[in-house]
Simulated scan of single mutants.
Amino acid sequence: MERPTLVMLPGLLCDDAVWAPQQQALAGAPCFIPDYGLASSITQMARLVLEQAPAERFALAGHSMGGRVALEMARLAPARIQRIALLDTGYEARQPGDAGDAEQRKRLALLEIARTRGMREMAREWAVGMVHPDRLDTPVFEAVLDMVARKTPEVFAAQIEALLHRPDATPVLQGLRCPTLLACGRQDAWSPLQRHEEMQALVPGSRLVVIENSGHMSTMEQPEAVSAALREWLVD
């Protein structure tokens, strides 16, 4: 059976490197990895990908912020999505009150570092919480830093704006009726497993895969396990 086109959405400050191992492992499926440019809302990102996608209908995988973009695409154009995979991501809007204000302060503080000291120096602080502790100061960690360093403070500012004003995707999850995979690193401190268990409860018939010995960057930290989960999802 011919595999569907697979649209793979990167997360915050990520590029095609975040999906490189899966693109290679799933070589039988035509893959498309977009760039959001300076889009500054989740909806703008979703519309951009829908315009650029090389097929009318496709399988859709999103990592981190890319998972939120995937859910917005499912809201805007559900008929175009054959199946959806959401990895190390979330679905709720920014919390109101003190919690939401604290998130905004933390994100803007990182942006200030990026503007004054450079993207790589910012990434060195930010990415510590993005990977399993055992991967600090390893080639995987350096690859994450290299990826972030390829972006600019202007892109970072646009994506922060998008995340601070992210929509609540609860109704989208509840409405999904296509084959749905949820995957999360066991040690993901940024988008924890509990959140993915909540998402699974919202999506009838969805499957949750826990990626062992992995933090938030599961596609790079445990590429074989993620690729295996995606391969099974594509033929489900």
Rank of each mutant, 00 (worst) to 15 (best):
Asn213Glu: 15
Gly97Thr: 03
Ala46Phe: 11
Gly67Gln: 09
Ile211Gln: 07
Tyr91Leu: 08
His165Val: 03
Arg47Leu: 14
Gly28Cys: 10
Arg80Pro: 03
Glu103Leu: 15
Met1Asn: 14
Ile81His: 08
Ile113His: 00
Pro179His: 04
Val209Pro: 07
His63Lys: 08
Leu173Ser: 08
Pro4Tyr: 09
Leu108Ile: 04
Glu92Met: 12
Leu202Glu: 13
Glu197His: 04
Phe156Asn: 04
Ile113Trp: 02
Cys184Pro: 11
Gly118Leu: 00
Met130Asp: 11
Glu212Trp: 04
Thr43Asn: 12
Val203His: 12
Gln22Ile: 04
Glu125Cys: 11
Ala229Cys: 02
Ser206Ala: 13
Glu197Asp: 00
Arg57Met: 10
Pro21Glu: 10
Leu71Cys: 05
Gln104Asp: 14
Leu230Ala: 03
Thr89Trp: 11
Thr116Ala: 00
Asp146Ala: 12
Pro139Leu: 00
His63Ala: 12
Val210Tyr: 12
Ala149Gln: 10
Gly205Val: 08
Ala201Leu: 00
Glu2Lys: 13
Val155Arg: 12
Gly100Phe: 08
Gln82Ala: 14
Met199Tyr: 03
Glu142Trp: 13
Ala183Met: 01
Glu224Tyr: 08
Gln194Val: 14
Thr116Lys: 08
Ala25Trp: 06
Leu111Gln: 02
Ala39Ile: 01
Ala102Phe: 12
Gln82Tyr: 05
Pro21Cys: 02
Val226Arg: 13
Ile81Val: 13
Asp146Val: 10
Leu86Pro: 13
Ala102Met: 14
Ala77His: 04
Gly62Asp: 04
Val144Arg: 09
Ala183Trp: 07
Arg57Cys: 14
Pro30Phe: 00
Asp168Lys: 01
Arg94Asn: 15
Tyr36Gln: 06
Ser40Gly: 09
Ala183Thr: 07
Ala27Asp: 13
Ala109Gln: 09
Pro192Gln: 01
Ala225Gly: 06
Ile42Cys: 00
Glu112Phe: 00
Leu13Ala: 02
Gly97Ile: 09
Leu110Met: 12
Gln174Ser: 14
Leu76Arg: 11
Pro10Asp: 00
Thr43Ile: 09
Thr219Lys: 01
Leu208Thr: 10
Ala109Arg: 04
Pro192Val: 01
Ala183Asn: 07
Ser191Ile: 00
Gly90His: 11
Leu176Ala: 01
Leu108Tyr: 01
Gln52Pro: 11
Arg80Thr: 08
Ala109Cys: 02
Gly215Asp: 02
Ala228Ser: 15
Leu163Ala: 09
Arg135Gly: 05
Arg75Asn: 04
Thr219Met: 12
Gln82Lys: 14
Arg115Gln: 14
Pro133Val: 05
Pro34Phe: 03
Gln24His: 15
Ile33Val: 15
Arg177Tyr: 02
Thr116Cys: 03
Ala39Asp: 03
Ala183Tyr: 05
Met73Thr: 13
Asp188Pro: 10
Val226Lys: 12
